[in-house]
């Protein structure tokens, strides 16, 4: 007989509690055990809420199970579930992540009247001519001249940006923001990017250096995974 692993392990640190659920017992069994454990804990109702991170190991936790866990931990307790982590993701979700976080690479010219629409980031090697349009759910990188319309984060992600070797767009759109070219004749700019400036509440165009300051997180793949 090997030593029996505890079904529920609770660890505490400065940030709160970490609650580990053994992934080899049936979920219902684990819930019963969890209920026991929670009831046996002593809590001071006057202290602020304790944040709880649930780690469910190699167990797949779907939305329904997440809800049940959350309700059980938070109900009648002085806990706040901040995250439910699991090592497994559903195949469909993984594929969706891959799709959304991947870079779609295309080399062609987007001419007047043509629309290129992708899920994820778009790396276009070529120009977007006036009257042409590129759209992506993520960021847009144009290795070429951007004369037409570019719409980053068209499904609503405001943290996306548009970068181009040469930027003289008819319009820049990021999520639900739109900016258009000025009415006076202006030269385009080289190696610049468009992002939403939260202070001014509009799209600004600035040097690519801005990205390293402002959108540090964008470059990180894992960060994007966690954001979904």
């Amino acid at each position: 007989m090997h030593e029996k692993k505890p079904i529920i392990t609770i660890k505490g640190n400065r940030e709160g509690l970490t609650l580990m659920i053994d992934d080899e017992v049936p979920f219902e069994e684990a819930l019963v055990e969890l209920k026991d454990k929670l009831q046996s804990t002593q809590q001071n109702k006057n202290e602020p809420l304790v944040s709880v991170k649930v780690q469910s190991g190699n167990r797949f936790v779907d939305e329904e199970k997440r809800d049940r866990l959350r309700v059980m931990i938070e109900e009648d307790n002085h806990f706040k579930v901040t995250a439910i982590e699991t090592n497994v993701v559903h195949r469909d979700e993984a594929l969706r992540w891959k799709e959304e976080s991947g870079i779609k690479r295309t080399h062609r010219i987007i001419r007047s009247g043509q629309v290129l629409k992708v899920t994820g980031d778009l790396l276009l090697i070529g120009d977007v001519n006036p009257g042409g349009k590129v759209m992506a759910t993520g960021n847009i990188y144009v290795l070429g001249n951007l004369f037409g319309i570019a719409h980053a984060g068209y499904k609503g992600d405001r943290n996306t940006f548009i970068a181009a070797s040469y930027m003289k767009p008819t319009q820049l759109r990021i999520a639900d923001y739109i900016s258009r070219a000025p009415d006076y004749v202006a030269d385009g700019v080289y190696m610049e990017c468009g992002v939403i400036d939260d202070n001014e509440d509009k799209i600004i165009i600035d040097s690519l250096k801005l990205l390293s300051r402002k959108r540090n997180e964008i470059s990180g793949f894992e960060r994007r995974m966690q954001n979904g």
């Binding site: 001419r111 007047s112 009247g113 043509q114 001519n129 006036p130 009257g131 042409g132």
Partner: peptide, 12 residues
């Protein structure tokens, strides 16, 4: 030129 661009897109 804009229309030519459109036409080239269609011809391609």
């Amino acid at each position: 030129v804009r229309d030519a661009d459109r036409i080239i897109g269609l011809l391609e």
